[in-house]
Amino acid sequence: MNLAKLTIDQVRSGFEKAGYIAEDDIIIPVYLALRLEKPILITGAPGVGKTEIAKVLAYAFETDLIRLQCYEGLDENKALYEWNYQRQLIKIQLIKEGTSDELIEQNLFSRDYLLERPLLKAIQAPKKVVLLIDEIDKTDEEFEAFLFEVLSDFQVSIPELGTLASRYIPVVVLTNNGERELSDGLKRRCVFLFIDFPSIEKEIKIIKVKVPEIGERLAKEVALAIHYLRHHVDLKKKPSISETLDLARALVLFGAQKLEAQHVKQTINLLLKDKDDIDLFNQQVGPAGLIECIQNQQDKRLERRIFT
């Protein structure tokens, strides 16, 4: 993967090849991150396609994706490297007699006993890989500071082995759900990308690409329904693109040609994952109300198209 001569069109076609519908607002930051060899920090609501970008990059550039899933309590051992204690123990027992202590120690702290975790794996990879650091906001500040150092130099010091520097700087994708404010230092070193919920037109395109069996009318109605739920109902968890696709697939399974109230009733659990949200929906809009709202929206869009 030669990024020095990468063009915007190549990135765009890479995304298209992977079936990820993206416009310039996504393509340009990704292109810049690749060309400037900087990590890209992607934020946005859950399910808008943040993690998918890392997968798309790995697919488009035909390289490996190394994923570090962050969680509360994640530390260096689980992210960088760890010594294989069990193996070291067995080795000690096997060579207990007849070998000098110094030799044992040298053997025990060699590469054979090193368990590479995602960060070290990415640094030591024999080619340029995509390193996905998912949900960085779930870690604590200490880990963030540590990560920040690794991402600055792409080298790691292991006391027993010395400094290991990367041969190929990996493409780093960090995702953030915004649960915690990240440090200014980390943000400063990244190219920033915010992914919003897609427009109706873009969502129709996504549905058609990901669920090709769906009819034109149904795709449009699904997109309108989701758009309405996101913007007009005060939900705790707004339906994301993945939930839109679940709904579209379910409707295809039902053999639906258009969205009807009974479909909404049957599939509402795919869209809303919180009991309070479902109650709120039934109370404020309801399946029949949603269909009516879609119809109104469609009429308005048609009107706008005619008069503008």
């Binding site: 310039d24 607002d25 340009i28 930051p29 810049l32 991150a33 920090l41 200014d184 943000k187 400063r188 990244c190 190219v191 920033f192 990308l193």
Partner: peptide, 9 residues
């Protein structure tokens, strides 16, 4: 897009 991605975080 370029300025937005690099100046505002």
């Amino acid at each position: 897009a370029a300025l937005r991605a690099t100046l505002v975080k």
